[in-house]
Design a protein around this nucleic acid. Structure first.
Lengths: 342, 342
DNA sequence: AAATTTCTGATTTACGTACCTCAGTTTCTC
DNA sequence: GAGAAACTGAGGTACGTAAATCAGAAATTT
């Protein structure tokens, strides 16, 4: 049988009340006595039964997910995963709320975060935007004792406690490797479509891609990046134009959203043109279809469900001050080919 | 506040004792009354607080992991993950034991499983071997009310409740795709090293690989499979011999263990020989080094930590008769390049 | 030495569920 | 319609922890 608070009291030679004061950091215990109790805890290897403690406290974990109001499939999938977590909330003693904010807008995001401080939740997961105001707002929440996890898009620094997302530099390098290997020794040009170069993730992916592909296949001509604003129609226009213009186009890397447009443009290319090797990010119904039809050659993915579940676990653990299983919280850069689709 | 048993009693107009009898399938309740209680449960959306229930019952989940006594790095990693789970056991109310059995031996595995029936645990996770005796033994355990999960190696059928592992046919196809794409249009021969064709996983991987590579690049000559018994030294000998013999060797696929030998042989190849594209399974310290040094081109992996944690979650859920989050329990076929190594 | 402050113990109630006992009520059987 | 059997209610204790109260002891100050 695992030791209980009663066992602590007995081995330390104190009463239950004192053990409780020590365990829950309540005042009114002499330093020497506290030390005796802590020694007893270490000696018998006591670990608090969190289930029983939460039951007694009637504790729940109020959590807030702050996500961009967006229309792209990945963000929709992410929200669906949060909804799924909300459905599981009673069993997990969480109370999860979603806050929509306009996308790519630092000051408004910061304002939304500051509004949370009025009734501070136990933890906040936020799809971060790289802006000083956001940095400051996260710092203030942290100051108020709120656990903070950045989700999908990071904002490195001491303010956030954890990042639930992928290393986008590595993701870009992975895309570069795949592109280089799939092209073999072939020459020609490679196009890159991004959402916006104002987003840190996209910059990282681009940097990684360029560096790795350049290493692997220096002869390739990497074209200037096209910005599609994550919008299918804009992406379609850009890619269609590029396909028409670039005769020797060997590859396309789409590192943002709006891949519906990419796939449409690839499908409509002139028969004469060889299909370029195409690599895109995020597994959605559209990219899945593109991969299956052969218009896309590989998809790099981050598992939104994993990210959401991981964020919740980390926030809860942080609120309780207990450690997490690091390996479980590492979000993989998934590579999907036609053959290993889930 | 979420509803409790008291709320059920109130809305059904019965006593707590009756609610308890219905909830815990105790006898002595008229069918009509039971129906009333169940209707109340549905009406107010009651879900049992498992934490409180387990506390009251003093319940723990005795689980047994039956794994092959083996020396290869993957199995060692798997055991390390089980040990890690054992360290977490108190918090998770599990009591996990490991049973070692000789590898590749159906009857002995079956005997080990039968021995468990003397003091049946709540659940068993077993690295299965395809043998009628094992099938039967699993059936008997199931009959005794034990939840069964096959781990890493499946034994399809109605007896086991779940498989915590990857689809090896798809893994083989994925390897075939990568090999085909990495080789581009190049011709030549491709060698395959397996552990033993008696193991279902290896057969599946081989089948998938051959089919997919044949589809993608029919000109390639896929050599007869070499069986290295998952032993580094045997694998080394086979591969070294093959490298010496086959001048036009374009690729090697190692679908089993013993990759230390593969990497050694690749490193020692004559300078004149071009390095074949090499793809192996399972991320271990050896294969990681091989990937980083460039001797391997890709590693397909199944996350042993995920498999173990998943098996535990599924076994607990099954013991309680509650559903799991399907997506969370799907073990991915991870593709690792140098760039996305964890 | 008295008054105060600080510390500690003993005890109680509560969280939501499980499980037991015993008394009491219905329903069935002959 | 009596006896047996089946069902139901009321109430208690327990699980491990939290949180509170109040009395009393010990240390500190005046």
């Amino acid at each position: 049988m695992r030791p209980t608070v009663h066992d602590i009291a007995e081995t330390a030679g104190v009463s239950l009340a004192t053990v409780d004061r020590v365990l829950n950091r309540r005042p009114g215990v002499k330093a020497a006595t506290r030390e005796r109790v802590e020694a007893a805890i270490r000696k018998i290897g006591f670990v608090r039964d969190m289930a029983a403690a939460n039951l007694a406290k009637g504790r729940t974990y109020p959590l807030v997910f702050v996500v961009p109001r967006g229309d792209n499939s990945f963000m929709e999938g992410l929200k669906a995963e949060i909804e799924a977590a909300i459905a599981r909330a009673p069993q997990e003693r969480t109370e999860i709320a979603i806050r929509d904010v306009p996308r790519f807008d630092g000051p408004l995001l910061a304002a939304a975060l500051d509004r949370l401080a009025a009734d501070p939740p136990a933890g906040v997961a936020v799809v971060a935007v790289d802006h000083p105001a956001v940095h400051a707002a996260i710092g203030r929440l942290k100051e108020a004792g709120v656990a903070i996890v950045t989700l999908v898009s990071d904002l490195p620094g001491p303010a956030r406690d954890h990042f639930a997302g992928v290393d986008n530099l590595a993701a870009g390098r992975t895309a570069g490797s795949l592109m280089g290997r799939f092209l073999g020794g072939r020459g020609g040009s490679v196009a890159v479509v991004a959402g916006s170069m104002l987003v840190g993730d996209h910059r990282d992916r681009l940097e990684g891609f360029r560096a790795r592909l350049g290493e692997l296949n220096p002869a390739l001509d990497i074209l200037p990046v096209m910005e599609g604003r994550d919008d299918p129609d804009q992406v379609h226009a850009l890619v269609a134009d590029c396909l028409a213009r670039e005769a020797g186009l060997a590859g396309i890397y789409s590192l943002g959203a709006g891949n519906r447009g990419l796939i449409r443009a690839l499908g409509q290319r002139p028969d004469a043109a060889a299909k370029p090797v195409a690599i895109a990010h995020e597994l959605t119904p559209h990219t899945r279809a593109g991969l299956q039809s052969g218009l896309l050659d590989a998809i790099l993915n981050q598992d939104a469900g994993h990210e959401v579940r991981s964020a919740i676990r980390v926030l809860k653990a942080h609120a309780d001050g207990i450690p997490v299983i690091a390996a479980q919280e590492r979000i993989r850069i998934d590579i999907f080919l036609k053959d290993n689709l889930p």
